[in-house]
Design a protein around this nucleic acid. Sequence first.
DNA 1: CGACGGACCTTTTTT
DNA 2: AGGTCCGTCG
Length: 778
Amino acid sequence: MQEAYLNGLNEKQLEAVLHIKGPLMIIAGAGSGKTKVLTTRVAHLMHSGVDSFNILALTFTNKAAAEMKERVEKALGNTDARNLYIGTFHSVFARILRAEADKLGYPKSFTIYDTDDSRSVIKAVVNDMGLDDKLYKPNIVHNRISSAKNALVGPTEYAMDTFLKQEDARSNRPAIAEIYASYAARCFKNGAMDFDDLLFKMHELLQNFPEVLHKYQHKFKYILIDEYQDTNPVQYQIAKLLAAVHENLCVVGDDAQSIYSFRGATIENILQFQKDYDDVKLVKLEQNYRSSQSIIGVANYVIKNNVGQIPKELWTENETGDKIKLVRTMTDNDEGKFVADAIQENKLRNHFYNKDFAILYRTNAQSRSFEESLRRTGIAYKIYGGLSFYQRKEVKDYIAYLRIIVNTKDEEGLKRIINYPARGIGKTTMEKCLVIAGEQNITFFEVLEKAKVFGFKAGTLTAIEEFVTMIKYFQNQLTKHNAYDVAVQVGKHTNLVKELFNDKSTEGLARYENIQELLNSIKEWTESPSNDDGELGDKSLGSYLQQITLITDADNDNENEDTVKLMTVHAAKGLEFACVFLVGLEESLFPSGMSVNTREELEEERRLFYVAVTRAKKHLWLTYANTRYRYGQLVQNDPSRFIDEMPEEQIDKSSSGGGAKNQSSGWGSAYDRMQGGSNKSWIDPEKNTRTKTEGSKPSYLPVVAPHTLNKNHIPSANFTPCDPSALEAGVKIEHQKFGFGVIKEIEGSAHNPIAIILFDKNGEKKIMLNYAKLSIVP
DNA sequence: CGACGGACCTTTTTT
DNA sequence: AGGTCCGTCG
């Protein structure tokens, strides 16, 4: 006799669900019902007598957590699921750290710094240390520190690590260790943790406080980790510590979908898992329930190019479905038009809704042309990623007030609002305060509190005192009123709301609305009976602030909203759509130009491609453009190598690119390329309009495999890229890919010279000298 | 002290 | 292209 919730599971899925005791690793291919297995397993645990308070499930997005909770509830038919500890690594650990903050010397309501805050602190540190901020760019330094934390390397270990030291010396940034130490000290002084600290400090907590470790080890008797392939060493170590007593650790992942190595994730964790525990139960889920056979076929075929992976093959009983459609357009704008038109057409013909479509790209910057074309076509869309609501300036400023009320040590927050709205505490005063704070080793706010002692001008002093009084007034309110009421008070007393209200420009209106939305969200949170803090029931402003920093755009997804979804491939992980447009499939874009230098990097790009392809249920379009604007400059890229890697017979190349009816897809040039003749035409707009198809017949032209023409050239041993300024007409050159040729002419502007080169084997090409590497042939 | 305008730099991907 | 930072002007 089986329980009802077990119905509908296949043999493998059932095996995974029924395994209760001991370590379990589930390798779950894309669309293999992973979430179903996870949620059913949780339901089964509870049904088997496990107390819901003893289950911890860690996911990577709040959305995944919410979905899991909801589905467990459904499977159980009661509300016990409310007691489950389900959340992202970051939010669960933030909650625990909040409860245990005093042990680490942090205030309970420590501030969580987002990436912008972190960078801003780093910038200040670099400046204070008198280092060159051109060399020590905030995001480079931040990445470095972030990687260290994710690898469990603290400032002290960093300074002692010879390998890291060598790396920094090689990149001419020997002071990173020092910056790291200073940054960490500054964050601590500010009573703040950055994203990585939420993991790093959590580990520290468990490592250094045996009684705390003991407490959580016994609380979390059953632990599940989703998207296991994307965990990094800290996350792994924390999980290992927590699971050490009961060893009921269940991890679910797919090595083929590991796409977060830049965040320190390592596939090693999958291999290590089997080494760390004696009898690991391993279950592979290989049947895909999501996609058509065509889609699965292509995904499998491409991923085979990766050397390192756990052997498995995804299969499906779904119908064969349409072939994958490959479309080439002239420009990025044409790409946008094509996609908008195709969506329009498919909505009519196949009765799809907007929400059945997703446009996936490699980088956020690519969204622009699609936004434009969708808007023009009148198709509702929503962009995910980019600036999150809480990162908008006006929202962040407002929140900065709330941050200061809760944690006056937060220097970053204080800097934002000390003179916003303007109250006569300018840059000079602020810098003076910061210097004093440094000298006296007190916080910025303490300097303000004791301003009298430090000899400010009378006017300035009054302004400071009024500011301090105001903040203290708010703090006082905090004990009497809820988070929402305090937030409203802040808006009133600071004139923030009024100021925005008076700004009647379009942007001003939007800002005002954003603040209203913020206030609404605080209200909603304050009044909701149960929230993410579940058992703690903590409705304080401090608790609110800690969770909003961890909310991302994707979490605000509204299932009922009928909009086309635009997002990066990374953001699309875990999602599925009936129709997917995977766009911008060009070399240096996808795969990213930054990730083609090592086999490992390239394989990750390929996994990313795999993730993108497997999001599609029924229809998949792959598009690329001949030319596009990047950093305001027109560039031309070869089609992505991933296109070459696909099985030709499964690809439908007949779709017309171009977008608008009177647009050419530029196939005339494809003909040229097949002839091995001139290539100049394919970026020549004049020629394009002439080579367009006659009448209403769709342009039906084959796509040329991009590398067949030029992949054979092997650069000479003495190939040394030369300075572009040394080039002029008549010079013989060698190109890394196109081989030998002669410069016919140099055109373009001085800062963006373009050489027209006649290649021996590849015809005439326009080469942008800022990008291409050419070697002069003597 | 703040508003404007011109250099300058950017870009992978995210909690 | 679009945002940020710094210099100049009122």
